[in-house]
């Protein structure tokens, strides 16, 4: 269960209404999302496949609700980047999708590989000269993922009843 927090006042983890998939009440009216060059679904799928690998452990796969949360939140963030920023991320995800499998002798794309093979491929890429793309995409994944209250709690972030961190 997510920690109990004051949904109106909490600035560090997603509120229950956001976790429930409701529209963010904060100033994100439909009117703010940029219309052109929205982050492509295939790039998003690569990011989610990467997220499954980055945040899974040998004890548990990535919980489905957190994956769903990423599926909603990532496009909302990336669609607000300027075209060049979006292009950089598309290139980054393309590099990960193609290079990581090739590094372990498998055919791309990454998202079609089983989880354990994906993990192996990404570990290989992290030790390769192509690490910059992986770091950039992983940073954005982490930024959103660890705002999920369960994910935050799992790494020891203690949220107090007033919303402050312990």
């Amino acid at each position: 269960m997510p920690p109990e927090v004051d949904a109106e006042a909490h600035p560090l983890v997603a509120t229950p209404s956001i976790l429930a998939g409701k529209r963010n009440r904060l100033p994100g009216p439909a009117g703010e999302r940029r219309p052109t060059g929205a982050f492509p679904p295939r790039s998003l799928e690569t990011m989610l496949a990467m997220a499954e690998a980055v945040f899974s452990t040998s004890e548990r796969p990535l919980p489905a609700d957190r994956l769903e949360y990423l599926r909603r939140e990532l496009p909302d963030l990336l669609n607000r980047a300027a075209p060049r920023g979006r292009l950089m991320f598309r290139l980054g995800t393309f590099a990960i999708s193609t290079i990581a499998p090739l590094l372990i002798g498998r055919l791309p794309p990454l998202r079609r590989l089983p989880l354990d093979v994906r993990i192996r491929a990404l570990r290989k890429m992290e030790a390769s000269p192509f690490v910059a793309a992986l770091i950039a995409v992983r940073a954005v994944l982490c930024l959103v993922y660890y705002e999920h209250p369960d994910a935050a709690a799992e790494i020891g972030v203690r949220v107090g009843p007033n919303g402050r961190l312990g």
Partner: peptide
């Protein structure tokens, strides 16, 4: 904030989560 700090942590799967658990 922790989510930004976590974004600096290397690793994949167990390697990453183990490091993230030491953010504090």
């Amino acid at each position: 904030p922790p989510a930004i700090l976590a974004a600096t942590q290397p690793g994949i799967a167990d390697d990453h989560v183990r490091r993230a658990k030491t953010l504090e």
